[in-house]
Amino acid sequence: MSGLGYARAPSLAGAVEALGRHAGAEIVAGGTDLLQRLEEEVLPPELLIDITGLDGLRAIEVGESEVRLGALVRLNEVIDYEALRAAFPAIVEALAVTASPQVRNLATVGGNPLQKTRCLYFRDRTTPCNRREPGTGCSALQGRNRINAILGGSEHCIATHPSDFAVAMTALDAKAVLASTRGERSLAFADLHRLPGDTPQHEYNLRRGEIIKGYIIPRAVLARQSHYLKVRDRGEFEWAISSAAVALELDMAGTIVRARVAVGGVATKPWRLPQVEFALRGRPAEPAVFASAASLATEGAVAHGDNAYKLRLLPRTVARALNELRERL
């Protein structure tokens, strides 16, 4: 093997067929995370299958009850699409605070949720890391873990999932449409990512040779009344240390009928908080209710030293997001 191989996929069928056959193959579209990994030799693929020529994956279809996004839609195309802004504020807001304008012009919605963790040890190929090299140990557990997860971790991995988009999609009950040689299936977005457990190298519930073809996002009052808040160490161009996608549906009296809360920057996968949603339901939409419901966000959370502040930050992020959303309703 003399260096990286590259091929243009002639068709979706050809792409998934080749992907299934080559253990070292990866799909490339936006390439914004993949090229970082190539350059830094972090799980570098051996063969790239370029699907950017597959025009069928490029569509945004706005229907009565749902919106379909093709995997090749670029992040900025979603942000600039008026109807989506109105239908899914949380998704558009999450994308608008993702990376930089340059990256958003390249990155696709198909690839974004599959980007790899920013865990400092995963990104330095010379250090032990179970996610990158199974069995070598997790350096982050007792290391520099300020950005690592307090939710969903295991003794093998506490890497934070980095996508903002995925958090909003999880909150809004989106589905991923997956394609392989065996046809198509759909998967709840919340089930797209796996917990690290004792196999942190397996990040996705994708079968071998399966790719994300697109998404289905249900249109609902909840989705229209949603919001994304991102907390980070600098003003822009940085991943979250904590984030929340929230959605509320109220009755005429201002009582919460339905609520959706998912958080990012704190968990090993996009993290839905059903206990917070439950605590909001049937209660008036007001700051004290938000604060008390948000305090449940850290149930089951485990801190590892440098990331202990997230125990304090997470509930406040959720409460702030709910308050900001309430201001708008």
Partner: peptide, 12 residues
Amino acid sequence: AANDAGDLDVRS
């Protein structure tokens, strides 16, 4: 060597 990928025209 990667050029056993079916219809794919693989180039390094």
